[in-house]
Deep mutational scan, measured.
Amino acid sequence: EEKRQVKQVAKEKLLEQSPNSKVQVRRVQKQGNTIRVELELRTNGKKENYTVEVERQGNTWTVKRITRT
């Protein structure tokens, strides 16, 4: 359940930055209360990979860091 929520948060964050792209989740890793989500962003056939680190704060998820990989 929490992985599902985190995927959603990570996707939304990337789509905010580039709204007309397609996002696909590649991998989800958990480390303590930080969850790392690896995503693939496609814009006009151009692929970019991103890693989004999401942290739990109380009962909400906040995006800590977005890295292009």
Rank of each mutant, 00 (worst) to 15 (best):
E1W: 06
E1L: 06
E2T: 08
E2P: 03
E2F: 06
K3H: 12
K3G: 09
K3N: 15
K3W: 15
K3D: 15
K3R: 14
R4E: 15
R4I: 02
Q5L: 11
Q5P: 03
Q5D: 10
Q5M: 10
Q5C: 06
Q5R: 13
V6A: 15
V6G: 07
K7V: 15
Q8R: 07
Q8T: 06
Q8I: 08
Q8H: 07
V9D: 02
V9I: 14
V9H: 03
V9E: 02
A10P: 00
A10E: 01
A10K: 00
A10W: 02
A10F: 02
A10Q: 01
A10T: 02
K11Y: 05
K11Q: 06
K11V: 15
E12L: 06
E12Q: 13
E12D: 14
E12H: 05
E12T: 07
E12K: 08
E12P: 00
E12W: 03
K13F: 12
K13T: 10
K13M: 08
K13G: 07
K13I: 13
L14P: 01
L14T: 02
L14V: 07
L14W: 02
L14A: 05
L14K: 00
L15K: 05
L15M: 07
L15N: 03
E16C: 03
Q17V: 11
Q17R: 09
Q17N: 08
S18Y: 15
S18T: 05
S18Q: 11
S18K: 10
S18P: 01
S18D: 05
P19Y: 01
P19M: 03
P19R: 03
N20I: 04
N20M: 06
N20P: 02
N20D: 10
N20E: 08
S21K: 02
S21M: 02
K22H: 07
K22A: 08
K22N: 08
K22I: 11
K22F: 14
V23D: 00
V23K: 00
V23F: 02
V23M: 03
Q24L: 13
Q24K: 15
V25T: 04
V25K: 00
V25F: 10
R26N: 09
R26E: 04
R26G: 09
R26L: 11
R27L: 06
R27P: 01
R27N: 10
R27C: 06
V28N: 01
V28E: 01
Q29K: 12
Q29F: 13
Q29V: 14
Q29R: 12
K30V: 15
K30L: 12
K30P: 14
K30R: 13
Q31W: 15
Q31S: 10
G32Y: 05
G32R: 04
G32P: 03
G32Q: 05
G32D: 08
N33Y: 05
N33M: 10
N33L: 09
T34Q: 05
T34K: 06
T34E: 05
T34R: 07
I35Q: 05
I35C: 09
I35N: 04
R36F: 15
R36V: 13
R36K: 13
R36C: 09
V37A: 03
V37Y: 01
V37M: 03
V37W: 01
V37P: 00
V37D: 00
V37K: 00
V37I: 05
E38H: 14
E38C: 07
L39V: 07
L39G: 03
L39K: 00
E40D: 05
E40R: 06
E40A: 09
E40C: 06
L41T: 08
L41C: 07
L41H: 01
L41D: 02
R42T: 15
R42W: 15
R42A: 09
R42N: 14
R42Q: 07
T43R: 04
T43D: 12
T43G: 07
T43Q: 13
N44F: 07
N44W: 08
N44C: 06
G45A: 09
G45Y: 11
K46F: 09
K46L: 12
K47C: 07
K47T: 11
K47Q: 08
K47L: 10
K47H: 09
K47I: 15
K47N: 10
E48L: 04
E48Y: 04
E48W: 04
E48M: 07
E48F: 04
E48Q: 06
N49R: 14
N49P: 04
N49D: 11
Y50C: 05
Y50K: 01
Y50I: 04
T51E: 15
T51N: 04
V52N: 00
V52C: 05
E53L: 13
E53P: 00
E53H: 08
E53S: 09
V54Y: 02
V54K: 02
V54H: 01
E55M: 11
E55L: 06
E55N: 05
E55Q: 09
R56F: 08
R56L: 08
R56H: 08
R56P: 04
R56N: 07
R56I: 04
Q57I: 12
Q57C: 07
Q57V: 10
Q57S: 11
G58A: 10
G58V: 06
N59F: 09
N59S: 13
N59L: 11
T60I: 11
T60P: 01
W61I: 05
W61R: 00
W61H: 04
W61T: 02
W61C: 02
W61E: 00
T62N: 11
T62Q: 14
T62Y: 13
T62F: 10
T62S: 13
T62K: 10
V63N: 00
V63G: 01
V63A: 06
V63I: 09
K64E: 07
K64A: 13
K64R: 13
R65E: 13
R65Y: 08
R65G: 14
R65Q: 12
I66F: 04
I66E: 01
I66K: 01
I66H: 01
T67Q: 10
T67N: 08
T67H: 09
R68H: 08
R68E: 10
R68V: 10
R68A: 09
T69W: 12
T69I: 13
T69G: 12
T69Y: 12
T69D: 11
